[in-house]
Amino acid sequence: MSALETQALAVSYGNQFIFQDLNLSIDRGRITVLIGSNGCGKSTLLRTMARLLKPQQGNVLLEGQSIASMPTKEVAKRMALLPQGPSAPEGLTVLQLVKQGRYPYQSWLQQWSKEDERCVRQSLETTGMTELAERTVDSLSGGQRQRAWIAMVLAQGTDIVLLDEPTTYLDLTHQIEVLDLLYELNIQEQRTIVMVLHDINLACRYAHQIVAIQDHKVFAQGAPEDIVTADMIESVFHMKAQIIADPLFGTPLCVPHGNGRTIRQAVYA
C-alpha cells in the first residue's frame, strides 16, 4: 500500500485548473522529491495532499483511506506538513514551538502526558536543538530556525512528513545540514518524506524517487538515475544541460548550458 496516493485529482484556482486527472503514488518509507519550474503546481500538489486545499474532483488516499473522510486530528496524527517560510509569534521559545507539535493528541480528557514530554525531548535531541530549547525562535540563525520547525513536525509523531521547500533562504552548508537530517530520519526511523526542492542536484542526491511536474501534469516519475536526463531537463525547465555522474555519490549531476561565458568573453575582450 502506498503512503499517499492521488486518484484522478483535479485542483483549480477560480476557473483555472492547476491539475486535472492527476494520478500519483508516493512510496511508503522512501524520500520523494517534487521538482519543476516555478508556478508548475508543486506546492499546490503538496498542500492538496495535506488536505489544506480541497480538490474539485478526484481523491487523496492516506494509507489507503480517503483523506476527505478522516477527522482532522486523525490526519494530523498520521501526516505532518511543514509549509514554506513558516513564522512564529515574537518571543516564542524553541521548546514552546516544539510542544505545539503535540496539539493533535490533546483534548479535555487527554492533557499533557509523559508521552508528550518524551516526544518533545526526543525531537529536540534528534534535531540537535536541546541546548537551544529556551532560546526564542526569532533569535536563531536560518539553519537553527529550520531545525526548530522540523523538531516541531517530528514531535507530531507522524510516519509521513511533507515539506515545502525546506532549504529556501538557507546557505549551502545549512541546506546540506537540513537534508542530511531528513535523510537520517528516513533511514533510521523509516519515515516517509515528501518535499519540494528547487535544486535538481540535491534532489538527485537525497531522493529515492523524483516526481517532475510540467504543465501541471506529472511529466516523469521514478529513480533519479532513470528519469533525470538532458531531454527531461529541457522539457521541464526549458534549459539545455548535460547530465554527468556526481563524482561523490554517482547520482545524476545537472550541468546547465548557457551563454554566460560567451557574454563575459565579449565584455572583457
Rank of each mutant, 00 (worst) to 15 (best):
T173H: 15
E90N: 07
G143S: 01
L182T: 10
V236L: 02
A269I: 13
V137I: 15
G91N: 02
L154M: 11
R51D: 07
G142Q: 09
T229S: 13
V178L: 07
V75Q: 00
V194M: 13
S123D: 04
T136D: 00
Q144H: 05
T167E: 01
L132N: 05
M49Q: 04
Q96L: 01
T168W: 01
E177S: 14
A207E: 02
Q190A: 15
I244Q: 03
E165W: 06
A241R: 00
P55G: 10
H174V: 08
A148R: 03
Q57I: 04
L61V: 09
E5S: 11
A151E: 00
A133S: 13
G101N: 06
R261I: 14
N186G: 05
Q190C: 10
I18Y: 00
A8R: 11
M232A: 06
T229I: 03
G64R: 03
T127E: 01
Y268K: 13
L52E: 09
N201A: 11
C254Y: 03
E131R: 14
C119A: 15
D226K: 15
V267C: 10
Y169P: 06
L182G: 11
V33E: 03
M239K: 13
K54S: 10
A3C: 06
A220H: 03
S69Q: 07
D180Y: 04
H216N: 08
I160G: 00
G143M: 11
A50Y: 05
E225C: 12
L109N: 05
T229C: 06
T192G: 09
A203F: 05
Y169E: 02
T130F: 07
